[in-house]
Amino acid sequence: MEEKDAVAALAALAQPLRLRVFRAMVGAGPQGMNPGELAQMLGIAASTLSFHLKELVHAGMVSQEREGRNLIYRASLERMSELMDYLAAHCCLGAGCEQLAIPGCTNC
């Protein structure tokens, strides 16, 4: 992942409602959710949800697919993993968590 892609992904997630939407879709897994289900689950208006989904799609954090008459949105678990890897790429300054005694760190 390039820095500009990481910035776009983080910017998309740096809004409370978009973060809630993304987390709900991560919870839904690979089957995804349609906007109606998502709006009802989160208690938000469809027009508000549409705006936030557009931002998440633009950042590559969510995909959109048409299934018949319905749109299905899915969290891009691959993109999420790439973002996590990017953020942890230089964890512990390359020394390894064991040497720095950082409890629970598994990225080094």
Rank of each mutant, 00 (worst) to 15 (best):
L42N: 07
G60T: 03
G94A: 15
E2G: 03
L100I: 10
E2W: 04
V26M: 02
L93W: 13
F22S: 00
A28L: 02
L42F: 08
G32W: 06
A45G: 15
Q99D: 12
A45E: 07
I72H: 15
A88N: 13
V7R: 02
G27D: 14
L71Y: 01
L10H: 03
S47Q: 15
I44Q: 08
L49P: 00
D5P: 04
Q99G: 07
G68W: 15
V26A: 07
C105E: 12
E78W: 12
A11G: 10
A14Y: 06
C91S: 09
G96L: 12
L10S: 04
A45V: 12
L13K: 03
N70I: 13
E67R: 15
E82P: 01
G60L: 00
E2L: 05
L53C: 00
V21S: 00
F22E: 10
A14P: 02
P16R: 13
G94M: 10
G27Q: 06
A75N: 04
R66I: 03
A39L: 07
L13T: 03
A6D: 09
G94R: 08
R23F: 06
A101S: 13
G43Y: 07
K54T: 03
L19W: 06
D85S: 14
L83M: 11
R69Q: 13
M61F: 06
M1S: 15
L93G: 05
A28P: 02
R18G: 05
C91G: 11
L83N: 06
L49N: 03
L17T: 11
N70P: 04
A11T: 14
Q64G: 01
I72Q: 09
G94Q: 11
M84P: 09
R74F: 04
A101N: 13
G94D: 13
R66S: 13
F51N: 13
G96C: 12
R79N: 06
G60S: 08
F22W: 11
E78N: 05
G29Y: 03
Q31R: 14
V62T: 04
A45Y: 13
A45L: 15
L38Q: 01
A24M: 11
A46Y: 05
N34Y: 10
Q64N: 03
M84E: 14
L38N: 05
L10V: 05
E98I: 15
L77R: 07
L38E: 00
F22I: 09
M33N: 04
S50A: 12
C92A: 09
V7G: 01
L10T: 00
L13W: 01
N34H: 07
N107A: 10
Y73Q: 02
L77E: 14
A9P: 05
A46P: 02
R66H: 09
I102G: 02
S47A: 12
L53H: 01
A6Y: 00
V21C: 05
R20F: 10
V57C: 01
H90W: 09
A14E: 14
M1W: 08
V26I: 09
A24N: 05
A6W: 04
R74V: 08
C105N: 02
I44M: 08
G68I: 15
L56G: 04
A46Q: 09
S81L: 07
V21T: 04
M33S: 01
A88V: 11
C105F: 06
L38R: 01
L38P: 03
G32V: 08
L56I: 08
